[in-house]
Design a protein around this nucleic acid. Sequence first.
DNA 1: TTAGGGTTAG
Length: 684
Amino acid sequence: MPFLNTNSLASLVESAVSTHSSHLGRAAHAQIIKTLDAPLPSFLSNHLVNMYSKLDLPNSALLVLSLTPTRSVVTWTSLIAGSVQNGHFAPALLHFANMLRECIQPNDFTFPCAFKASASLLFPVTGKQVHAIAVKAGQIRDVFVGCGCFDMYCKTGLWDDASQVFDEIPQRNIVMWNAYMSNAVLGGRPRHAIVKFMDFLGVGGKPDSITFCAFLNACSDMWVLELGRQLHGFVIRYGFGNDVSVMNGLIDFYGKCRDVASSAIVFDRISRRNDVSWCSMMAVYMQNDEEEKACEVFLQVRKVGLEPNDFMVSTVLSACAGLSGFELGRSVHALAVRICVEGNIFVGSALVDMYGKCGIINDAERIFEEMTNRNSVTWNAMISGYAHQGHADMALALFEDMRSDNGEITPNYVTLVCLLSACSRAGAVQKGIDIFESMRKRFGIEPGPEHYACVVDLLGRAGLVEHAYEFVKKMPFQPTISVWGALLGACRMYRKPELGKIAADNLFKLDPNDSGNHVVLSNMFAAAGRWEEATLVRKEMKEVGIKKGTGYSWITVKNAVHVFHAKDTSHERNSEIQGMLAKLRKEMEEAGYNPDTNFALFDLEEEEKISEVWYHSEKIALAFGLIAIPPGVPIRITKNLRICGDCHSAIKFISGIVGREIIVRDNNRFHRFKDGLCSCRDYW
DNA sequence: TTAGGGTTAG
């Protein structure tokens, strides 16, 4: 080793920080000890404290600090900044306190760290103390300190204090204005952000890309498509048409305002897309229920030879979960392992969710067990995986584990929804009611519309339909779509057209464009032999211009997706499919199966109705699956609408005849058929 | 010191 002077030793330490290599850092430290006698020059000690702290080796950092006889503001600030950077906010504040105890004055680098730590811990009281110290030290007028202070008040919800700080800062730079706008959006005051933007222009300010992004966020929160469009023009005029950040912001904005086409146009016109552009486009498709398109974007990423990142992987996994796209999901899992992102908490949670929704509960469990970091989303995903399978006992057991895990992660709003839906799917009525009634007291969670909807579903599914209606009437707020939807579902299941009409009428008011509700109601009347009323509902539907969407079912075989619509004969293996359908029909008839023709269009003759239900897309997909998928492998079908009642009972029956596991995911839930049974009890 | 994208329910 050549002789190293103190400057080159310092740069060795710096390179350990910049490459984030603790190995290099330790080696540099060893070299320093070898080369120099103690005590080290203070600037080198500072470098070491900074290095260990940034490398998230807090004990080593503290050790060096305690061995440094002359600790300066730089030494302490290095320690504090590293702690904050690595998310250790409470220790950062402790170090800050110790520094003051040593009578060392914090500087313009220290205060922002202390503010950030207070903000992250949501400690407004501590934040106020730091503020007082900064005022006393005469530092508050510094833009960095002032901005940190302002940000702290925003993040801890003290908006008035924040505004006061903003007004008192003498020289506001663009960062300060941007901070105001983005915090206003984050704090649910998008209108404030827009007003501030106007003020900013009024004082001759020149917006930058962050300003535009903040403005766009405000627009998407307020759903003001027109205002955002105007800003789009403004962006171009200001010469930001090639700024990838602003373009990404526009993709996101249009997507949130449900103008997917504009998002796609912006995306297509970006000459140099970055990771965020791709991710944003995927997210837009996801937010607008176009999972297939999201998958396509992901495949395009791979096609152009880009390495996907953790964001893309978690998004595409959730698309797979929505589509029950188990094959793609599995291959994305393999990819995640290869690019080393499977340890990421978002990716892990998305994997648990994907496997759970695809019904591969063992793999979901395995991923869950192997995850070293779990957050409430991870737990909820696993609980809902059990719920989807109808394993209320497992869901409840996991919930208990969650509560006793380490106290860090507590059940939240969604956890309770998952649990209640697990009870409802498993028919655990009393258990569900107990949980619902105790949620405020035991878990401190105020029951919301989703929880009420679960209880309605719970009661309704157990046949207590009138009870369910009484429960709805006693709700402390207006019942939502999901509440009436759950009641309508129960009425359909137990054939209660009168009550069903009440539920449906409410749904028509709240959700006039959903054709599904009309179809359910008319089928319900048809099932009760009340053809006139059934026809009337269909007529109304036509008059108002509501169309029943086309039903599609799809199935993946060897990475190719095969899509079928009703009466589809276009598949290249159509003759085999028809042969299989005929064979199934014969075997089922011999085994005594009666098709339920209430689900066919009711103005047909009985004979026609039978053939009508026989050629529903899910049955065709199933026939194809039986031909193309080797025995022993489960057949997975996805349908974009609700599975029809006859198909549900037919598939149940078929699963017994052919001795195969059949999994159908429709737009409502998940059905696993095996040995003539289905995981969801009494669906119709 | 400001910002752009992700995971859980129904």
